[in-house]
Design a protein around this nucleic acid. Structure first.
Lengths: 359, 359
DNA sequence: GCGCTGTCGCGAATCGATTTGACGTGGCGC
DNA sequence: GCGCCACGTCAAATCGATTCGCGACAGCGC
């Protein structure tokens, strides 16, 4: 096994060449502690001659007990997780804040690829100072358990509260309720709903009361509740992920020809913008006009240029700010602050996809 | 400064409790070396009692000289980098391969946020065994220089060859040429081109010969060359990024009303599918039929359900496989293999967006 | 019963840095 | 001129694990 850094100079060699002790050489680089400019320059000169490019992070990390790495547990492999711009924007805000403190983001798959092993090996043993669980922590989450057992502190985004862990959430319930009130105010009475995955296992298809009772995952369960704070939807369809094609499939089932015109929902509330966009596309393909024949509202407030000329009516959530709040929670944890819970506000923004109910 | 792992048990404590030496306890966990089942069980039992969850990765890393971390230098902040599904798919393939070996992916911004500092602090000092430069290495790339100075080995994707670094590329030039030949065979003579960023600084707008001579970045410069292997485009527009809105803007300029019908290009080749999709949307908005009035071809072979009912004619590249090849290159480097260059094949797939030239 | 062989556990060195308390020196105050 | 203080440097301990070579002990064959 070739060692990774075979033959590279060490601080000891630099110190020797500069004619100082290792401790002094360390001071020259870290700047923590008294040292005369001449001594430091001598050390730096020696370093330059040896092509020494600064202290080995591994040594520093062991000594300080910190890796400078924040693990981000993404619900699935990136191929799926990052197809949704929502995740990307949150990650962006998070990296922004962490980057300013020199902290790096380690991407960790949230599902195990290996049968019989509950979590990814990285969850179980990669070096990280804090882990961020970005989406949908469920009860008895195996990742959460593994991390806590290791003593890795955790920040939770959009999940159920975890003892001792900061939580960053948004007003899922109130926002959903607001969207529905908007539809009701427009005269809609037959409102259908396209839901994000809310159960432990993935399913697709219509949802009945029994299935609904198993709603366990956030944020979908909160959004389900928000809808029901206002009306009982006439139809709910469960999707396996927040993707355009699933929204399209759902809307096809909701609006398809087999539904008598008199019973067809006049409005659809989708729990994400990508699902809503899929619904718009399905409506177009079915020859239905949006919003004259059917109104469609989403959740997230994404900018979707390809849906042009339509602009989604959507519950806007501050995605970058959510990521930033997660980042600040991480920093707080590292600084030893008491964990707190943050709930960010949302706001309904009307686009062109909702209008008065057809008569 | 609170140490991160204050009070957590160490291997030494476990060994003490189990009544064995530290070295034996280490063997119990690593499994490398002879140890009787009874001894190992005693150690594991002691570990369980102390809630010791396995060797501290930091200690292990220092000793082995390896961090188990692969840095992925993303050209920009993730907010921009991952808006393109191309990046996501490559990252997915990469993580797949690395994950199997227990290697983690550290996301590193490729641009510095701080004035005067050429690279992100993570590039300069984060622990990583190998760095992957995924997109468009330019000559004198500051990231590349910083990494090489540190002695971090590098894998290059889609860039100019780097001494001692494995390279993974695709047949950009041949693929572009094939797309153009397809258009020519359909009778198109006035072909316009929408280019990915190809210069060092970002620009938007029409491109003249002088600007073209500055083409420095891959893969765009190769695709430019491929087009010119077949015909000279009548018009080239440069975009700042591979995004739908930029493709739309470009196509608006190319197809807009100010262009006399007799001079309007009858076909557009875009260097990415997102750009091509933007062009399709622009054509729709301008009331032009695709492909009757204008043919549009892209590059990447993305699945774009929201472009429905259109399906892009596109040069398909094996994105996941590209990521996997990058991953294998990383593993090869770590195993000490001689670096090699890989070029993956592409393949033109006809969709519904190209057809015979209008007469 | 002696010696040889193989197995398993142990001690100590090592990875590369940080940090603390001690020490020497030179300057200054009284 | 003596003593004290401040400043800068250094030696040594420490972080937590891995690994190598040695030694002890048990079993076996003759």
């Amino acid at each position: 096994m070739t060692r990774n850094n075979a033959g590279r100079p060490t601080l000891a060699r630099v110190a020797e060449r500069a004619g100082v002790s290792v401790s002094t050489a360390s001071l020259a680089f870290s700047g923590a502690g008294p040292i005369t400019p001449e001594t430091r320059d001598r050390v730096l000169a020696a370093a330059a001659e040896l092509a020494y490019s600064g202290p080995n992070p591994l040594g520093r990390q062991l000594r300080s007990g910190r890796s400078g790495i924040v693990g981000v547990i993404i619900g699935d492999n990136p191929g799926r997780a990052f197809r949704d711009p929502v995740s990307v924007k949150v990650l962006d805000g998070l990296m922004q804040v962490l980057g300013e403190q020199g902290l790096g983001v380690l991407l960790v798959p949230g599902t195990s690829r290996v049968e019989g092993v509950p979590v990814d090996p990285l969850v179980a043993s990669a070096a990280m100072d804090v882990a961020v669980l970005v989406w949908g922590v469920v009860t008895d989450d195996p990742n959460l358990e593994a991390l806590q057992r290791r003593g890795v502190r955790v920040v939770v985004g959009e999940g159920r509260p975890v003892e001792g862990a900061p939580l960053v959430a948004i007003e899922d319930r109130a926002g959903s309720a607001e969207a529905i009130r908007h539809l009701v105010a427009l005269g809609h009475t037959r409102i259908a709903e396209i839901a994000l995955p809310f159960g432990r296992e993935e399913r697709t298809g219509p949802v009945d009361a029994q299935r609904l009772a198993q709603a366990d995952r956030t944020p979908s369960s909160n959004r389900l509740a928000g809808v029901r704070d206002v009306v009982e939807p006439v139809f709910t369809w469960e999707t396996p992920a927040s993707l355009v094609e699933h929204g399209r499939d759902a809307a096809m089932a909701i609006l398809g020809e087999w539904v008598p015109d008199s019973e067809r929902p006049t409005a659809i509330f989708a729990q994400s913008d990508l699902l809503a966009a899929g619904a718009v596309i399905a409506a177009r393909e079915l020859g239905l006009r949006v919003p004259e024949d059917v109104s469609i509202a989403g959740f997230d407030g994404l900018d979707l240029p390809w849906l042009s000329p339509d602009v989604l009516t959507s519950v806007h959530q501050p995605l970058g700010e959510k990521g930033a709040a997660l980042g600040r929670a991480v920093l707080g944890l590292l600084a030893g602050d008491e964990p707190t819970a943050v709930t960010l506000p949302v706001r309904l923004v009307q686009g062109t996809t909702t209008g008065p109910a057809p008569r």
